[in-house]
Each structure stands twice: as C-alpha cells, then as structure tokens.
Simulated assay, not measured.
Amino acid sequence: MFRFPELAVAAVLSGAVLADPAVPPDAAFQVEDLVFPVEDIVPEIESMDGSESESRLGEEVTVALTSDVLFALDKWVLTAEARQRLAGVAGKVKAESAGGVVKIQGHTDDQGADGYNQALSLRRARAVQQALERLAAGAVTFEAAGFGETRPRLPNLVNGRPSEFNRAKNRRVEIVFNVKQ
C-alpha cells in the first residue's frame, strides 16, 4: 500500500503510458498552458424577497428595485411600499455618493411593443427620480433614462419558453452612482 495515494496514481499512469507499445519510450509530450480571461466579478447582495439588489463594480454602485415592488402593473405611479424603499436608497446615496450625477435607469421585460416599453421605462425612471430628488434634498443631481426591453438582466426566454421569474427580474429601476473613496 502506498503512503501517498496521489503518487501511486501518478506511478500507475506513467507506467501505463510507458508500457503501451503504441507509444515509443522516447516520446515527448508537449504541455500547453491553458489561459482563460477572467471577466469582472461583480458581487451582488439581494434582499430575501428578491425585490432589491445591490452590486458594486469598482467605484460604481447599482441598486436595483423590481418594478413589481415600485409600481402596479402597467403604471408609473409609485406605491406606498416604493416610497419606503426609496427613502432607504436616498439615505444610501446621501451617505455614500461621491457626488456628480446619479443615474436612474428604467427597464421592462419583452412583453408589449418596443415603443410602449420604452415610454413606460422612462416614465418609471422619472417617477423614481422625482421621489429621490425630494428625499435626497439636493445632495446630488439625478438623471433619468428609459431602456425599455433593450438591456435585460436575464434572458426573457429560456429554451424557447417564457420565464416569468426572469421577466420579473428584468422589470426594474436601477439607481447607479459612484461612491466616495
């Protein structure tokens, strides 16, 4: 019995290769380095109910709130729960923002016409912008933009079938700002 099993495996493998009559004893094997690019790793924190998440890439923080928590279906008027959530986001922006422009980005899923989704996402981003401007009281400048269904967070279709879970994640408003160093 071998004291180091990994050496036993190596011995067996090297003996098997050398004992194979198809492989000449003086054969050399070329070993190539495998090099893979590493994508940016973006850590994300998500609320227990999945309605809010926060990610950070360098100095940029993105807080995403699902539209289901902010608005009624096909509406752009904030719910009472949305105002509570946005108060927390406004506090975070006031405490951590490095200043400059805070981007409010509205997104939809793939249901409905492109033009409708574009307009809805902009209206929702502007509603969040107005609420945050009141709550942050001039601490930063806000800028709203709507992207409709052009920037899904997850694929709306999985294996050719609609994914309601993914669509719900795609219906969101993101608040993007740079943090103090």
Rank of each mutant, 00 (worst) to 15 (best):
G106L: 03
R126M: 13
D33T: 15
D109P: 09
S97M: 06
R85M: 03
V101H: 02
S51D: 14
G115Q: 10
D40M: 09
L120V: 08
K94I: 14
G88F: 02
D49T: 05
R123L: 10
A131N: 00
I45W: 15
G112Q: 08
R126I: 09
S51K: 12
W76Y: 15
A127G: 06
L122W: 05
V17Y: 03
P25M: 02
V69M: 12
F71K: 06
V128G: 05
Q118N: 09
D109S: 08
L70D: 05
A90H: 04
V101Y: 00
K75C: 07
P25E: 09
L57Q: 13
A125P: 03
D110V: 10
A19P: 08
V38E: 10
A113Q: 13
E60N: 10
W76V: 04
G100S: 04
R124G: 02
V77D: 15
Q30F: 10
S51M: 13
K92D: 12
A113W: 06
G58A: 00
S53C: 08
G99I: 00
V42R: 14
D49L: 02
T79H: 09
L65H: 01
A87K: 12
E96D: 13
V42C: 01
Q105S: 13
P25K: 11
K75Q: 14
G106A: 04
G115R: 09
L18S: 14
D109Y: 09
Q111L: 12
I45Q: 15
A125I: 00
I45C: 07
